[in-house]
Design a protein around this nucleic acid. Structure first.
Lengths: 195, 195
DNA sequence: TGCATAACCGGACCGGCGGTCCGTATGTTG
DNA sequence: CAACATACGGACCGCCGGTCCGGTTATGCA
């Protein structure tokens, strides 16, 4: 009874909006240049449709982000080695962080938009952050005798914040593979330290 | 010839604006609620004065932040143990991070306002970030045989990002001393790992 | 001390943004 | 095919950062 089938055009419009937003974010120089009116126009839709379907701007960005992240989420929750839950922690932690880093490199502006802290919606009050944190913490906890996993998980996730990634690969022109290597080295140091 | 003495009332107004902004940020729930018009009104000054004196909103926030941070900066560049330059790296790195963490705890909303990434001004394109990073990196480089100091410095600074600190001490109510201890443990793990 | 001048003040004003609202159009169901 | 519910869309609103210029006031010189 709670679920009512949405109208067909509504579903189509929803997809059109997400596709338009994705394109606009990818093409823009800065996420703030992508306004709700722009997205609506690019999707051939009125502004009202955007706000009815997604609530507000952060809501739209979140929906888009989570849609694009879904494959990785799948791979982590029940995928094969090295992201899946059967991977031993020493391998899985770096794999998780590397996957997240690559995702942010591939969706730079979208990730930047998401992490823009506006008003009460910090990047830490999102569903997917909690999920990443819990996954990482639980994996760390599988390391025998490891302590401080909660804070460590936060700190590791902070090392791949979108704006930091953007800063390192942007003006300083650090190549993608270099950054991945640096992150891997950093992670290794965390895992092999005293527990 | 480049330096002209500013008028006395201009200097007074500048201080009044900084004081008003400091108070408003401290009292507000969220940094975005503090508008330029509010600051101007609280300082008994017109909006034009704000923009002439500080350029724009980020400029005002930066000026305020750097003014409040100045004592710590002094203590780091030529102060005594444990922040000063004569401290051995194993002690100085945690001391630097702890000082920064405490500062962000004491100036929570101001720090949040500063790190809000708007348009082209990411928190990483500020003078003081470069300074913190360089200081931390150089200190890490004094550790014999340490590699990857550049990225490590970024990652350590990311662990004390204002919004993360806010998130941990806010809803989750983690006491100040707990967080400091967690950060210290994390830092220690970094320093004692394989180089 | 008084005047001429440049520096500074301040609030009316502007463009643009996120978000709302309601008359209209369209898909859906019996 | 009719009648209803649902979604559409763009005019509209309030607010904010930032600009501008006529009026004011400190300052340097005579």
């Amino acid at each position: 009874m709670p679920e009512r089938k949405p109208r067909a055009d509504a579903a189509r419009n929803r997809e059109a909006v997400l596709a338009a937003a994705d394109r606009l974010f990818a093409e823009s120089d800065s996420p703030e240049q992508v306004t709700m009116a722009h997205i609506a126009a690019a999707a051939g839709v009125g502004k009202g449709t955007l706000f009815r379907g997604f609530g507000d701007r952060p809501g739209l960005i979140r929906a888009l982000y989570e849609a694009r992240l879904e494959p990785i989420r799948q791979a982590v929750t029940d995928g094969p080695h090295p992201l899946g839950p059967d991977t031993p922690p020493q391998e899985r932690v770096p794999a998780l962080l590397d996957a997240l880093l690559c995702f942010k490199l591939d969706h730079r502006h979208l990730s930047l938009a998401l992490e823009e802290s506006g008003a009460g919606n910090s990047p830490y009050r999102t569903q997917h952050y909690d999920w990443w944190h819990a996954t990482l913490r639980d994996t760390l906890d599988r390391l025998p005798g490891y302590t401080g996993s909660d804070f460590t998980a936060h700190a590791l996730l902070a090392a791949v914040r979108a704006d930091l990634v953007d800063h390192l690969t942007g003006p300083r022109n650090l190549p993608r593979e270099h950054l991945r290597a640096e992150l891997a080295a950093f992670t290794a140091r965390i895992l092999s330290g005293p527990s």
